[in-house]
């Protein structure tokens, strides 16, 4: 009987290993382990065995049941895995077909640059201020040391609302507005729209953007102005950019300077873009004129400061190699999508 059982086990395992579906396995289970199965049939004949044989054969029979059961479980798992593999394989798709599009909008390139500048200056402790675009002549000119009939007014063709109200020609009135309200230490920038009565062409626009900067405190020096702006230029254009300060004139700063940066295109070698100079003018700056400080109620004998003004279109155009300023206000989707 022992032999009979061992042969049955061998047969069953062979049949299981050859099975390729769950149904077949079920048939095998019924055939051997079912109520009318072979093992059951063998066990039924156990009564005819001697008392000594009975536990031995019983143990063997149990082993056979366990082994067949385990083999069946293993085979089932295998088949399930195969079936899953087949199903997954049948689900193959063309991953190179286009994705379902979620379109995000984009900020205007000018905003992108303004945000970048705000981040750079914020990191240096500069607060960001905004102020009126329709501005009193006083703030736009007089408080900035440009009285009526000053020749400097000619260089800024001004739109007038009335004799005393203008469309601001620069963001510099924000210097005065901030100094009137806040006592030093002051560190602020003011980005914004400005206006000049220039007819629009590839390089001129009657509406454009500037960023004003102002630092006022005890002991602020021109060396601080240089250091701060160098830091800014490197943050904006990368560490390999170098800057150059040239004397210039603004009515509201003394001394005044213009800051040039190495040409974006030739990196200082000289090319048509920089007219062979290797440098490109980036911004105007200077030490706040003592008269401007005094006019805002800040004692120039105690405090000093520096100011800067950057034309933003210039930076945007250079960065993205845009050759016509009018593209910035045309709002063509084919343009806006590119940034």
């Amino acid at each position: 009987m022992k032999q009979q059982l061992e042969q049955m086990l061998k047969r069953a395992l062979e049949e299981i290993s050859g099975a390729d579906s769950n149904e077949y396995l079920e048939n095998i289970r019924v055939k051997y382990l079912g109520k009318k199965g072979e093992l059951t049939a063998v066990l039924r004949t156990m009564g005819s065995l001697s008392a000594e044989e009975r536990p031995v054969i019983g143990q063997i029979a149990n082993e056979v049941r366990e082994k067949v059961g385990a083999a069946l479980d293993g085979a089932r798992a295998l088949i399930q895995r195969h079936e899953a593999d087949r199903r997954i394989a049948s689900e193959t798709i063309d991953v190179t077909l286009p994705g379902v599009r979620t379109e995000f909008g984009k900020t205007h390139p000018l905003t992108t640059v303004i945000n970048e500048l705000c981040d750079i200056f914020s990191g240096m402790g500069f607060a960001i201020h905004e102020g009126p675009e329709v501005e009193y002549d006083y703030y736009n000119f007089e408080a900035l040391n440009v009285p009526k009939d000053h020749p400097a007014r000619d260089t800024q063709d001004t739109f007038y609302i009335s004799d005393n109200i203008v469309l601001r020609t620069q963001t510099s009135p924000m210097q005065v507005r901030v100094m009137e309200k806040q006592k030093p230490p002051i560190r602020m920038i003011a980005p914004g729209r400005v206006y000049r009565s220039d007819a629009a062409d590839a390089t001129h626009s009657p509406v454009f953007h500037q960023l004003e900067g102002l630092v006022v405190d005890k002991g602020v020096t021109m060396a601080d102005l240089k250091g701060t702006l160098e830091f800014f230029a490197k943050a904006l254009f990368g560490d390999d950019v170098s800057v150059r300060f040239r004397p210039h004139h603004f009515p509201f700063t003394e001394p005044s300077a213009e800051m040039d940066v190495t040409c974006f295109k030739c990196h200082g070698k000289g090319c048509p873009l920089c007219k062979g100079e290797g440098y490109i003018e980036l911004l105007g700056c200077g030490m706040v004129h003592p008269r401007v400080l005094a006019g805002c109620g800040i004692d120039p004998e105690i405090y000093s400061g520096f100011a800067l003004g950057i034309g933003l279109e210039r930076i945007v155009m250079r960065r993205f190699m845009i050759d016509d300023i009018r593209l910035l206000v045309e709002n063509d989707m084919r343009f806006l999508r590119q940034f």
Binding site: C118, S122, M124, G125, A127, V220, A223, G227, E254, P255
Partner: peptide, 29 residues
């Protein structure tokens, strides 16, 4: 301030050292 400019432009803006603003921390951003 004007005299300072006269002297400095002959001295050379490029010879002024570059330093960062010191002093009280300000609330930026």
């Amino acid at each position: 301030a004007d005299i300072a400019e006269e002297v400095t432009r002959i001295y050379g803006y490029d010879r002024i050292p570059s330093t960062l603003v010191r002093g009280e921390t300000t609330k930026g951003g």
